[in-house]
Nucleic acid binder design. Structure first.
Lengths: 335, 335
DNA sequence: CTCCGTGATCAAAACGTTTTAGGCCTGAAT
DNA sequence: ATTCAGGCCTAAAACGTTTTGATCACGGAG
């Protein structure tokens, strides 16, 4: 209740409200003696700036919106942690929206962001359709795409090369002696899944294999551990185990691993297994999981820095489409 | 840039700004014909309410602050997902703060929340000292404690009974035939760790054992998989393996499991193992992990509902200290 | 025919800050 | 002496809503 306003601070320090505002926002503009007096008043009264009033008048807030597809997935959690860290360092607050892969929910998130007049939006789009995102852009709200390459030149994006990642994984499996590989994936409408497939095919071709023969796709509807185990059961039931399995993410791979071990299939002796994302649990599973590591935390951090640079230096800002490279992590499951 | 204000909407609909505001906030107060006219204008102009202006005048915003200890821990992620879900259903935005267990960072989060004039705060306190929280309360910002019992009667809290959880785990281990049990935990200054220990001791006493003999504590500095593995290595190196191990969370347990299996210790034949939290990965590990399940998602959801009820119905609201009960989940690691 | 109640709308004030244009000094340059 | 510049500060307007009290038109009751 006891909301102390800038006026009361001004009164106690014997200056005008404008001067208090100056102390708060450009302290160098005000004489040292009065600055100290004002700062004391602020402390004594326990004044905290009213963000709404501030952003109403100033025309922009100190918040950014973050919309992710699934906050329960460690990949996105790490991204979110990076965002929160970078934003908080600069005094920005993060408004979190979880779309659960639902376009409608994503749209609602963007509306909330618009109402809050966020300074900018970070988004991992839930689909390939970026119309809503363009709309934000036209409204003057800066947007940085996360884990999705930008479609327009006047926009920043931060992503990891999934084609390279797919190649790394499959090249490694080939080097380990595999001939027949199964790619366990989510829906191929998901860009990441599709790109990793392309990379896989390229690696096969480069090694002199025919992808149509050497690679089998096994798409599951979800990308969690349960689906991975179901995929394992299916492979085993049909009696056509490949030499190696490449899973589109680590959750699938962990489920696959469990399904295989339960059926008595030894990893890696009978079958090599590699995942994607290198989540923490990949190294903690009984047979530690080879995987493709992505700089997740960094993804969130760099995206945030790009966004805030765009907001603070609209003139000097150069739009960038950053593409990180993934990294192969070899562990027991492919040895 | 194209910021459409309520005035322009009013002009186009041929009414006063006040009427537009009424259409937005209490549509029942305005005649149907004009309401429709205004709604059309809103749609045509693409008007979105300016949240800052709104909350400046109305005195409260439509945001809640959420400060968690470690957004990377699946436990907190689930809680956050529950919060986001419940808040978003009611049109509230969630401002996320990650304290990383750091008191200073937590304090900074609370300051940001105060600046944003959030409607209320949900917090899993990073320590036992709730002074800063009380301070918020005195400022008129409602607070609900998450996973921490309230210390004052005029405050809501939502937690899970950790004493019961500790008892459940240890009773189960005893029933499985264990005599000597090791409790692998984080720092015992963490309330959750300490409470689970109390529960463990109670279960032992109730079964006629002397806790000082039957139970050994092994506190680690961190509560992640790495620490769990280190704990396993320590037990093995010292050559004093117990009959059963109770880990204070699943991350520790997964690391422990890996360390044991690598050393050739069979689970559960040689040693029973139980974790805490029942994170998704507990069931996906090679030897699926028995655990104590907590209603995490629900924790976040109920906390949010409590908070928003307190905000919207300050008079009729009854403060509640809700204590959920945990649940024993038996899997392979204790069979 | 007047009075009053009711429902719908409006005009204007208020919320707490930032920003703009200017005012008042002091001291230096003319 | 006068002017000028620069440093410091102030008064007041503005941001886009919500809310309050007032106004107005319309019927129905007296």
């Amino acid at each position: 209740m006891s909301s102390v306003s800038i006026k009361e601070v001004a009164a106690r320090a014997g200056v005008s409200p404008g001067t208090v505002s100056n102390v708060l926002n450009r302290p160098e503009k005000v004489a040292e003696s009065t600055r100290i007096r004002v700062e004391e008043a602020v402390r004594d009264l326990g004044f905290v700036r009213h963000g709404s009033a501030s952003s109403l008048r100033a025309g922009h807030s100190r918040t950014v919106g973050l919309s992710v597809i699934d906050i329960g997935n460690p990949f996105f959690t790490d991204v979110a942690a990076g965002v929160e860290e970078a934003a908080s360092e600069r005094g920005y607050a993060v408004i979190l929206g979880n779309s659960s892969g639902d376009r409608l929910k994503e749209e609602r998130n963007l509306l909330v962001f618009a109402e809050q007049r966020v300074r900018g939006v970070l988004i991992t789009p839930a689909g390939a359709d970026l119309a809503k995102v363009d709309q934000l852009k036209d409204r003057g709200i800066n947007v940085v795409l996360v884990d999705h390459p930008a479609t327009r030149a006047d926009q920043c994006s931060v992503a990891v090369n999934d084609v390279t990642g797919g190649s790394l994984a499959v090249s490694h499996l080939l080097a380990a002696g595999a001939d027949r590989i199964t790619y366990v994936t989510g829906p191929l409408t998901i860009r990441q899944c599709a790109d990793r497939l392309i990379g896989a095919e390229r690696a096969l071709t480069a090694a002199g294999h025919d992808p149509r023969e050497a690679l089998e796709e096994l798409p599951m509807s979800a990308m969690n551990a349960r689906s991975g185990q179901q995929a394992a059961e299916k492979l085993i039931a049909e009696g056509r185990l490949p030499d190696a399995v490449f899973c589109a993410n680590d959750l699938l791979a962990l489920g696959m691993l469990r399904g295989l071990l339960q059926a008595g299939v030894r990893v890696p002796q009978d079958l090599s297994l590699i995942g994607y994302d290198d989540i923490d649990f990949a190294s903690a599973s009984a047979v530690s999981l080879s995987s493709i590591r992505q700089p997740t935390h960094r993804l969130g951090r760099v995206a945030t820095e790009l966004l805030l640079d765009e907001c603070d230096n609209p003139d000097s800002h150069a739009h960038q489409q950053i593409m990180f490279q993934p990294e192969l992590i070899v562990r027991e499951s492919t040895r």
